[in-house]
Design a protein around this nucleic acid. Structure first.
Length: 943
RNA sequence: GCCAAAGUGGCGGAAUCGGCAGACGCGCUGGACUCAAAAUCCAGUGUCCUUAACAGACGUGUGGGUUCGAUUCCCACCUUUGGUACCA
């Protein structure tokens, strides 16, 4: 047989697997199941990136391993294909997004198949498939049909929502609007990034410094009718259910911080004159705190109601509805100017860079409901309209932000929490010259005086609740999910807006009947934005846009769903991809869920995983899935960087500058002292050397050189294309290399010589078994049907043991190292027992499946090894009869001792005391203590 | 600023429980084979000092600590990477 040639072997086995449907998954698991899932890719025009095969190989190894261990394995692949790039491409080239998407999917599929992944391709799906998004729309309708019962903490059908009698009395339309307000999918006004220059709405990521990323046009924030999903209702469950998941603590914390639950109180501050206050207060006593905010108050949210006595001013967000109402005529001009400026800043810009506080006084005052004193109402953009009530009480003595603002605008600071004795700067704090945010004893706080922070908190909430001016409240940093996009290439909403005789919306909406799903996208001639903040679907023909049902005319919803929608439930569809009567068959769902192992990039740690968990919980509440959580174990693979590069810096007159004297300026790297712009120069390996911890120029060691791996990017020109790696080294080498680079979770640099190294290993495996000099298929003569020697057995069985253990703990790099040791050992053996060779082939098969199949065939087997039982090991054969034990004196290694492996502590100590090399160390010394760990070491403590 | 992860040879990395630091691979050096080269095979390869050799000292970002013994545990600090950004 000839030399190892992946270009021949790999297509051969890919064709074999495909035509034999080797990896077809049964409808229902037979015996134990395991569901192993990749985060499916967005099929971009650039094709597969070397980052993709990293996670995909890891899951493929797991899948192939568990098949050989006899489990039913579900291992599917699909495409997250709705989204912006296809639409941008359409605008640029006038190609319908569906066409470019299908081209890209074909490329991705070809590339994935070239890598030999064992997906059940019959289950492949794309979120853009009509039969798929039909069910995405169906789930939206389920969200639309669900309200959240706070008492029961679960979603229930909208029909079960109790409608108050006074609403019922107002008639059918009132009832409909009441229900619409409680649905998990509801319409609301939300601020969007409207870019008049581009004539479109932009995502937050597309806005940089208040300008559009493309074209640098100003972007304005304006409210627009949007579909929202009430994810906040599930906030508590999304936090508490993290407990049972096998995810890293880091990701769990990230999610729980993102949800950001806080507890505190809502408090009403009346906007009345001091003389009106007593009557306002009297009216409130004994009253229930209302959901709707009365006209004469500012409602605030605080986590520290115990500091209420220290509230010396109030701040409302520039977008707060009360701005117009409270602003006095004298302040009107300044207020308008400030608020207008704020609309041109995104949340991010407001907080970016220096944190100098800005604000403007409204001229108005509110009454502090505990001190009864009037306090000024300010407008400042450090208060966000989207959190809490969009208004705060400012307690500068005990909140850093308020303190900064108070100092900037010379507002009074009153200390109401006495810091503990050990706190530094106590006097300053008590004088209001420093801010203190910790817990302490209440001070200058009426009935709270002397109470600890927690007691004061409980007491004040109780008092104010009794007085009808406050109530306990919970808030989340997490906002309701803005679910609509003013884009073409997404799922249309299955929603109709009723029109009156003149064609105006009546405000009444209805869901498209389930039997009429899917609502397909209309054909459009032109995808370009039209200059109004309105979605492109509004340009569809009337035949698509308008619908008449039971004599009423409706206009279709023209927003589309965001890219997240399709990825929220694809893991369910893989279980039953062809089902035409349900999202997934309930029995199959019960049998296959949850996903046992989910591997993907860390960039989805928050949003995708949070959104999918939310949908899953709604499906659970409504009885469509059997478990509360979809993804049992989650692993994030690390990023693969480009090759390590050495970079030096030079001035314009070509003088080297050591990296010690460089820093990042606005337009590039500059000299620390002169601020002169420097050019970066790539330096060859041979021109640098390491001195101490740094690399320096060989020609001038005073010049330090930067050494690092950068993210792969087109601009830098360090992108590695998997296709070219496959054609040069083979898919098995690529797979093996990506697993050998280091731990799966780690960020690691690419290295072409490293790929060469694993290819070299595969060549050695080949030559271990195949006679490369023979013309025909022939094994080497060393392979014999003979029992392994004890030493060979030790290698065989300890390799099986280690590789098995490492595969289960996802430590693929060390598993490969063990197989290399195996090959190094047997290469030297002139007699190679067939059984040992077969074990190696099976161990290697999840990593390098093509080569393994080829060798398996060469060893005389006539069908695929995909379901061949995983080799067993006998632990007793891994142990040798003798072992080497280190001997230490005072913890330092001084000698080594060969003893029978089963020596006990006594024998070990005895042998150690008589070891001739230790004699010189022990001579004239006294052994104070002997530490003997059988099978490990001996240590004598001497004096 | 805050949160998280990580710092080990020339490089990527390894080291189940606190017990021989540097497995495995790359690179490098030498040797065998060859007319020669490639390929392959074999051997060596942390630093320093010394030696004919054995041996020895130092060594896992830095500084402390706990321990018979620390890459591993504790404290403080430095650096890098990723995330986050006034959430009251």
């Amino acid at each position: 047989m000839p030399r190892y040639n992946p270009a021949v072997i790999e297509p051969k086995w890919q064709a074999y697997w495909e035509s034999n449907k080797t990896f077809r998954t049964p409808e229902m698991p037979a015996g134990e199941k395991v569901y192993i899932l990749d985060m499916f890719p967005y099929p971009s025009g650039a094709g597969l990136h070397v980052g993709h095969p990293e996670g995909y190989t890891a899951t493929d190894i797991q899948s192939r391993y568990w098949r050989m261990r006899g489990k039913s394995v579900l291992h599917p692949m699909g495409y997250d294909a709705f989204g912006l790039p296809a639409e941008e491409y359409a605008i640029l080239h006038n190609v319908p997004p569906r066409v470019s998407t299908e081209t890209n999917i074909a490329t991705f599929t070809r590339q994935l198949k070239d890598l030999g992944f064992s997906y059940d391709w019959d289950r492949c799906l794309a979120t853009t498939d009509k039969e798929y998004f039909r069910w995405t729309q169906w789930i939206f309708l389920l969200l639309f049909d669900t309200w959240f019962d706070l008492e029961q903490q679960r979603g229930r059908p909208i029909a079960e929502l109790a409608v108050p009698a006074d609403v019922v009395a107002q008639g059918q339309d009132a009832v409909a609007l009441f229900r619409d307000k409680h649905r998990l999918a509801y319409q609301g006004e939300a601020l969007v990034n409207w870019c008049p220059g581009l004539g479109t709405v932009l995502a937050n990521e597309e806005v940089i410094d208040g300008k559009s990323e493309r074209g640098n046009h100003p972007v304005q924030r304006m409210p627009l009718r949007q579909w929202m999903l009430r994810i906040t209702a599930y906030g508590d469950r999304l936090i508490s259910d993290l407990d049972g998941l096998d995810w890293t603590l880091g990701i769990k914390k990230l999610q729980s911080d993102w949800i950001g639950r806080s507890t505190g109180a809502e408090v009403d501050f009346p906007i009345v004159s001091p003389s009106e206050f007593p009557s306002w207060q009297n009216n409130r006593i004994g009253q229930l705190f209302q959901d709707s905010i009365p006209d004469d108050v500012l409602r605030i949210y605080t986590t520290r109601p115990d500091t209420l006595y220290g509230a010396t001013y109030m701040v409302i967000a520039p977008e707060h509805p009360a701005v117009k109402k409270v602003t006095t005529t004298d302040s009107a001009a300044a207020v308008k100017q400030y608020c207008d400026a704020a609309t041109f800043k995104s949340d991010r810009d407001r907080t970016d860079g220096d944190k100098r506080k800005t604000g403007v006084f409204t001229g108005a005052y509110a009454i502090n409901p505990v001190t009864f004193k009037p306090i000024p109402i300010w407008i400042a953009d450090y208060v966000l309209i989207g959190y809490g009530t969009g208004a705060i009480m400012a307690v500068p003595a005990h909140d850093e932000r308020d303190f900064e603002f108070a100092k900037a605008f010379n507002l009074s600071v009153e200390c109401v929490v006495e810091p503990p004795q050990h706190e530094s700067d106590r006097d300053k704090i008590l004088n209001g010259d420093r801010c203190f945010t910790g817990a302490g004893l209440a001070l200058n706080s009426g009935s709270l005086n002397g109470l600890g922070t927690q007691e004061a908190l409980d007491r004040i909430i109780a008092e104010l609740t009794a007085n009808g001016v406050a109530r306990q409240a919970i808030n989340y940093k997490l906002r309701d999910w803005l679910f609509s996009r003013q884009r073409f290439w997404g799922e249309p909403f299955p929603i109709l807006h009723e029109l009156d005789a003149s064609g105006k919306p009546t405000g009444i909406i209805r869901a498209v009947d389930v039997k009429d799903l899917p609502v397909d996208l209309p054909q459009l001639e032109d995808y370009k934005p039209h200059g109004r903040p309105e979605p492109p679907l509004a340009k569809a023909d009337d035949s698509w846009l308008y619908v008449t049902i039971e004599g009423k005319r409706y206009r279709r919803e023209t927003n589309t769903m965001p890219q997240w929608a399709g990825s929220c439930w694809y893991y369910l569809r893989f279980i039953d991809p062809k089902n035409s009567s349900a999202i997934v068959d309930r029995e199959k769902e019960k049998a296959w869920m949850p996903v046992d192992l989910y591997i993907g990039g860390a960039e989805h740690a928050v949003l995708h995983l949070l959104y999918a968990r939310f949908w899953h919980k709604v499906l659970f509440d409504r009885g469509y899935v059997s478990q509360t959580e979809p993804f049992h174990k989650l692993v994030n693979q690390g990023m693969i960087l480009g090759e390590v590069e050495f970079t030096g810096f030079k001035t314009l007159d070509n003088q080297w500058v050591s990296t010690v004297h460089t820093e990042k300026g606005e337009t590039g790297f500059v000299h620390t002292k002169t601020k002169e712009l420097l050019s970066t120069v790539s330096v060859a390996d041979s021109e640098v050397t390491k001195v101490g911890d740094n690399f320096v120029l060989v020609s001038d060691p005073s010049i330090r050189i930067d050494s690092r791996a950068h993210k792969m990017s087109k601009a830098r020109g360090n992108v590695v294309n998997p296709d070219s790696v496959v054609s040069e080294y083979g898919a098995d080498s690529l797979r093996l290399y990506e697993m050998f680079m280091g731990p799966l979770e780690a960020t690691k640099p690419w290295s072409t010589t490293g790929v060469n190294g694993v290819r070299n290993f595969l060549d050695r495996v080949w030559r271990l078994m195949v006679d490369t000099h023979a013309e025909e298929n022939r094994l080497v003569d060393c392979i014999q049907d003979i029992a392994p020697t004890a030493e060979q057995n030790r290698v065989i069985h300890s390799t099986i043991m280690a590789v098995t253990r490492d595969i289960e703990s996802l430590s693929f790099n060390t598993a490969i190292a063990r197989m290399m040791e195996f090959v190094n050992f047997f290469t030297k053996e002139t007699v190679r027992p067939r059984q040992g060779m077969e074990s190696l082939v099976l161990l290697l098969s999840p990593y390098a499946p093509h080569m393994a199949e080829e060798l398996w065939q060469a060893l005389g087997n006539d069908h695929s090894l995909a379901y061949q039982p995983w080799p067993n090991f006998d632990e007793s054969l891994t142990r040798s009869s003798e072992m080497e034990v280190p001997l230490q004196i005072n913890g330092k290694l001084r000698a080594k001792l060969v003893v029978p492996a089963d020596s006990n502590a006594e024998q070990l100590e005895h042998a150690a005391r008589n070891h001739e090399k230790l004699a010189e160390w022990l001579d004239g010394k006294q052994i104070v203590k002997a530490i003997v760990v059988p099978g490990r070491m001996v240590n004598f403590v001497i004096k």
